[in-house]
Design a protein around this nucleic acid. Structure first.
Lengths: 227, 227
DNA sequence: CCTCAACTATGAGATTTATCATACTTATAA
DNA sequence: TTATAAGTATGATAAATCTCATAGTTGAGG
């Protein structure tokens, strides 16, 4: 995670992402910009949360570390979206989950400590966060419906497109199986099927997308109803 | 839906449910109390939303009517919980979903029209609603995990206990199948299995719970991790 | 009274997915 | 260096779940 202090770039992100409209005050002077390299953590479970982040560019994924130490993939995020807003609202100092960058990510960031009181009393911000929660909730309901409604192949296709990076898919099978709610064994069956059908090409440590259009077509219905 | 204006009863509900702590102002003079008979609607999709409800007693279920006209069960609610808060936040006049009473329900209610502006500018209320969303979100994540993690029998057991009324289970199979994400046919298989195992007794138009403890034991894990 | 739609019900066979057993590879830590 | 754990991989078999076909029942409306 690296801070970028080119004021031009920061201001540009603030305006194009609508960040300034999330508050009743002008956040410009307090806002930092961070660049997070692919695979690095934006926030790590258990660590103290020092910033309220606002993802403006890139793709990220949210993990939960279960009681038994296992890792479970919860959800994916694309801009614009808040990170750490749940902890802020609950006034919890530590992060509940881990957010990891899939591709390179850029996040605007407000230091929580000095601003928490102000934020929790700011009706504009609270209203925006509420709206954010409502939409997130609609999306969750839709997604939950999808999981029941669509077969694994389609959901996996959608998943691969979502998480692929430069045409390469390289998620951990164990975690993906858990996320999709299927067994490890079955996931490998379906992946093998994708290879056989020419959607993917298997390479040592990852899969290369060979037929992006085909995958997109497969995933189409799922994505369609998630929007 | 019937208004109850016994002030004693209203005040009692307000205090015991913590309703007055949801606002920066004293809601007492604006708060009405409604009794909704089992199976009646608290809010109906598409109808204008005139009250922000707060369920203080009873069980209710949330439906979505899909584009194709089908009905899909989304979730269940127990006190205390807001009803209509999503529409209020989005400033939408019509209800997106339908909420139906499973058992007799009692709801505190604030008229939206005259109070909307005040509510959307009230930091206390907004913060409470945010907290409510955060918890709802945690719950959804857990539930979504459960749906993948637990076999149908356990989820159905949990479902039956949740929706049963006076020891009788009488939900529409079509909707339940959709809610559990299984086929109609399979639901009947599992119900037949429950009858064979002595959990349920089939009666003309419904099932009678014959072994509540057994069902509770079956459902145990599911409920455990939903809390 | 009749008809149509919605709901309930059951069987047979196919498909999807899980479980278990078993190896091989790779990275990490002692 | 050698264990040890995590990740990958594959086969065989069983269980869960779906699809399709088919029918009886019920309630609303003409």
């Amino acid at each position: 995670m690296q801070e970028i202090d080119t004021q031009d770039v920061i201001n540009n992100f603030i305006v194009t992402s609508g960040f300034n409209e999330q508050f009743s005050f002008d956040p410009r002077q307090d806002t930092k910009l961070f660049h997070i390299a692919a695979n690095d953590f934006i926030v790590k479970a258990g660590a103290p949360l020092t910033y309220l982040f606002y993802l403006v560019k890139g793709k990220a994924k949210l993990y939960d570390v279960l009681a038994n130490g296992k890792v479970s993939l919860i959800d994916f995020f694309t801009p614009p979206c808040f990170i750490g807003e749940m902890e802020l609202i609950e006034q919890r100092s530590a992060t509940a989950f881990s957010m990891q960058a899939i591709t390179d990510c850029w996040c605007l960031a407000l230091p929580i400590r000095p601003l928490q009181k102000k934020l929790l009393a700011d009706p504009v911000f609270l209203r925006q966060i509420c709206l954010y929660f409502v939409h997130k909730n609609y999306r969750t309901v839709k997604t939950a419906g999808n999981n029941a409604a669509f077969p694994v192949a389609q959901r996996l296709a959608s998943f691969i497109l979502l998480t692929a990076h430069d045409g390469l898919y390289s998620e951990k099978h164990v975690q993906v199986a858990e996320y999709l709610g299927i067994s490890y064994r079955h996931l490998l069956y379906v992946l093998a099927q994708f290879v056989k059908d020419g959607y993917l090409i298997k390479q040592q440590h990852h899969y290369k997308i060979a037929n992006s259009d085909g995958l997109t077509r497969l995933a189409h219905d799922v994505n369609e109803s998630t929007n």
